[in-house]
Design a protein around this nucleic acid. Sequence first.
DNA 1: ACGTCATATCGAACCGGTTCGGTAAATGAT
DNA 2: ATCATTTACCGAACCGGTTCGATATGACGT
Lengths: 335, 335
Amino acid sequence: MTTIRDVARLAGVSISTVSLALNSPKRVGAETLDRIQQAIKSTGYRIDPVAQTLARGRSSLIGFVSANLGNMFFGDIRREIEHQALDHGYFVLIADSSGRADLERALLERLEAQKIAGIALAANGRGEEYATFLRDFKTPIVMFDQKVEGAERDFVGSDNPLTTTILTEHLLQLGHRRIGFISGPSGLHTADERLKGFMNTMAGAGVDIDPSLVVEGGYTRTGGHAQAMRLLTRRDRPTAIIGANNMTGLAALQVMQEMGFRCPDDVSLAMVDDVPWSNVITPRITMVVQDAQKLGELTAQRLLTRIASPEGAAAPPEDFILTPRFVRGESTRRL
Amino acid sequence: MTTIRDVARLAGVSISTVSLALNSPKRVGAETLDRIQQAIKSTGYRIDPVAQTLARGRSSLIGFVSANLGNMFFGDIRREIEHQALDHGYFVLIADSSGRADLERALLERLEAQKIAGIALAANGRGEEYATFLRDFKTPIVMFDQKVEGAERDFVGSDNPLTTTILTEHLLQLGHRRIGFISGPSGLHTADERLKGFMNTMAGAGVDIDPSLVVEGGYTRTGGHAQAMRLLTRRDRPTAIIGANNMTGLAALQVMQEMGFRCPDDVSLAMVDDVPWSNVITPRITMVVQDAQKLGELTAQRLLTRIASPEGAAAPPEDFILTPRFVRGESTRRL
DNA sequence: ACGTCATATCGAACCGGTTCGGTAAATGAT
DNA sequence: ATCATTTACCGAACCGGTTCGATATGACGT
């Protein structure tokens, strides 16, 4: 492995000059610069990122932390962030917290120990204590999807109340009144907001909500399955179900199929977020989708500028809220 | 940030002793060890992984490189590897090559520059030159899914010829003779082997193969879609189609739906590999699935032992071949 | 009592860069 | 011609660990 000293020796300059030539070429004489570049070519010198990190106290790695990479939603965001990061010379270190707040915290601390340049985080931790933890973190963080109140960080996400508002209004217009709602983990930002969107819209339309039709599916497949089962085995089952995310929505569909209900003839279904191959799923599900690519793009851009800007010039945290899009399928029918 | 020197000072020993205490506690006197541990607790000292990497010339990062994290198959493997890696104190650095061999190579070199401990690789590069590149790589690599002949590396994968052999036999038994085959990128190990499995089984059964029914879908959704379109718009279209992976298989299903063909009534379909939510896709697709979790497990184990074992004790590379499992769905019918 | 050997600890070199203060030469102003 | 300033480059300290040869101490065998 050739080091910076080899290059310096070959070019007949000091190592600090080589370092200069690498980092701010304009500050080096034209002819010297030339000799150094020659030396670099001929030795095949590659800078050692580890040594650089140690010396600079900052690496060229970006962390991506989310709950579930398997969910296409996060996958798309990750792809976009990775894409932009690579363009800017950053590598992406990915960590999956599996939705466990303690693990997530440990991961963040490990990332920080790696002197990571910045972190894109879809948080799963909640509460004031966690917000403080995030606020006092020294590494730049841009949060996406899940906003943590009090963390005082940039946030990129969707208008979550609107997602369920749209779906609820759609179902109300079709004449549904008994609507089951499979919510996400209570306490989680998007889950609370989506639930609120549902509740408020129902209330706004003057429709009573049967509290027992509002269940918590935890955003997971298994949770959604269990709760959908509960909803659909009832004698007075709902005429329509809203899944607060793609996992619970599809889990509900699965339960319908398992139980022999036809969708939408027997029960209507709508959900938030798409899945891959949704167009080969029968029936095509009515949903509200977020623009994952755009979310990833914004997150990456914000993070990169955070990283680039000297910490002194700390711009105040900003929220970027995208408007979700309604995609009508054939899983909802007029009552 | 407290360093090892702070600990040493507080414990009244030299830094080398602290380092010793950290790495081989038994070689340090009981009382001294105690004092050092006290000092570590009270200062909240955390070892700096970057400095450690620089000094050791090896980090505690493991690389995971594959073509498409979005594909559940790779996602499951990744999860398993990450799981085991974390257990052993390793972090996983994930990189998505998007199937581009040149990018993959660049990624591997970057990973190596990070002094990564080891790499789990689903290769996309091909050819002798690439094999040499992999063979001469100094970092431990365990390849999975895609075997590269001549790379002389450990390999964990499935019996690929068997996957399509099973599907082909199944279709033959149902009376199908005109079977379309949407293959993967030619030159890629699994693609070639799966194609071979199909061809040999057909030949073995004495069935002529119409070469125009064998098309290359590149393992991608778009490729599969285009090729399925070609197959199904023909006047003498096949009575059954095999997708060499989940992407092309589902793409074929999508085309059928778009064109108004019913599956399996008009055309039968079978594919290799599962997708999430396959059980809400109608019809349930007949497939051969690999045990992704087991693959990930084996890959991780092998990689960890490679990393642990001194390079001197270079065990010869080994192949671990798993047997895929047939899952009958309702997408194939008797002619 | 003495040489031998194992044990506990230390000092210093090293990993491969960055960064800052300083110097010598060149440029510019007056 | 003189002094101030800029330009080009260098030396050395530093980032925070690891590792190996050296030293001191005490135990052991005879």
